[in-house]
Amino acid sequence: MSLRSEYSERTPVLKNVADDIENLVREILNGVPRVDRISSRVKSVERFLEKTEGKGYHQPLQDIQDQIGVRIVVFYRSDIQTVSERVIREFREVENRPMEQPDPEVFSYEARHVVCLIPPDIHSRHKPPIDFFELQISTLFQHAWAEANHDLGYKPHGALTYEFRKKIAWAAAQTWGADVIFDELWNQSKPQPG
């Protein structure tokens, strides 16, 4: 059986798991302020196959851990930590790290990615062939940049011109700046304890 058909075959059950996890995340974050949206997706067959190409996955059906992704979009950078702490109380994570550029002069995709175990009750209900899903927590600006970048720029690097890539990076830098400013403004304006 080809990788395409093997992955296609599992997508309906992944969808059911993704729906259950999304509903659970909604319950967990019910009442938490400044959560803009919560959504989930199953990685499309095409994106799954793209990801397997050239990245050295020997067992992509096992090793690609974002086959199910749940995205939480919050207003400000400080909210990422609050939301992250709240959801981590509910799930067992095997990875929890900010996705950010190590080089301070490079601007690109940023978000917090948490790889979590599918909760045992949901796993037992649907019996998916995977153990993990990925939580992606980002600000509104990070989310907006990621969506546009995905639409415009998610192609092999060789296919994009220097200028095109420079503009994408410039937009990421603007996004970063806007997030920093809004977070500062929020922290100045929020009611102080006492």
Binding site: Y57, H58, Q59, Q62, D63, Q65, V94, L117, D131, F132
Partner: peptide, 10 residues
Amino acid sequence: GPKAETTFWT
């Protein structure tokens, strides 16, 4: 589990 990078976590 099978031999893969992400197995044997549980």
